Amino acid sequence: MKNLKTTLLIATYNWPKALELVLLSVLKQSQLPDEIIIADDGSTEDTKLLIDSFKTQFSIPVKHIWQVDNGFKKAHILNKAVAQSSGEYIIQVDGDCIMHHHFIKDHLQFVKDNTYLFGSRVNIQKSHLETLFSSKQIRFNAFSKGIKKRTRALHIPFLSQLYKPSTEFSSKFRGCNASYFRKDFIAVNGYNEDITGWGREDSELVLRFHNIGLQARRLRYRSIVFHIYHNEKSRDRFEINDSIEQETVNKKIKWAKNGVDKYLA
Rank of each mutant, 00 (worst) to 15 (best):
Ser120Lys: 02
Gln84Pro: 02
Arg218Cys: 05
Asn250Pro: 00
Lys73Ala: 07
Val68His: 05
Ile195Gly: 12
Ser171Gly: 09
Ile51Gln: 04
Asp52Asn: 14
Trp198Met: 10
Ser53Ile: 04
Leu9Val: 04
Lys252Glu: 15
Gly119Ala: 13
Ser179Gln: 04
Val206Ala: 10
Ser43Ile: 04
Gln57Trp: 00
Val122Ala: 09
Ala11Pro: 03
Leu9Asp: 06
Asp242Val: 00
His102Trp: 08
Lys55Leu: 01
Asn114Phe: 10
Asn79Tyr: 00
Val111Asn: 09
Leu219Thr: 11
Gln137Val: 03
Ser203Leu: 06
Ile253Val: 14
Leu27Gln: 14
Gly190Glu: 06
Leu207Tyr: 12
Gly119Gln: 09
Asp40Thr: 11
Asn14Ala: 13
Phe58Met: 02
Asp69Trp: 11
Arg208Trp: 05
Thr151Phe: 10
Phe158Tyr: 13
Ile186Glu: 13
Arg182Val: 01
Gly259Arg: 09
Val22Phe: 07
Cys176Tyr: 10
Ser160Asn: 14
Pro157Leu: 00
Glu45Ile: 14
Ala81Pro: 04
Ala265Ile: 01
Val225Lys: 02
Phe173Asp: 12
Val68Thr: 12
Gly95Cys: 04
Glu193Gln: 13
Ile240Ser: 12
Asn79Arg: 02
Phe173Met: 11
Arg220Trp: 01
Trp15Cys: 03
Pro157Cys: 08
Phe58Asp: 05
Glu130Ala: 05
Arg121Gln: 13
Phe169His: 14
Thr131Trp: 00
Gln215Gly: 03
Met1Val: 13
Ile228Asp: 08
Trp66His: 15
Leu50Asn: 02
Leu4Phe: 05
Asp261Cys: 00
Arg200His: 13
Phe185Ser: 01
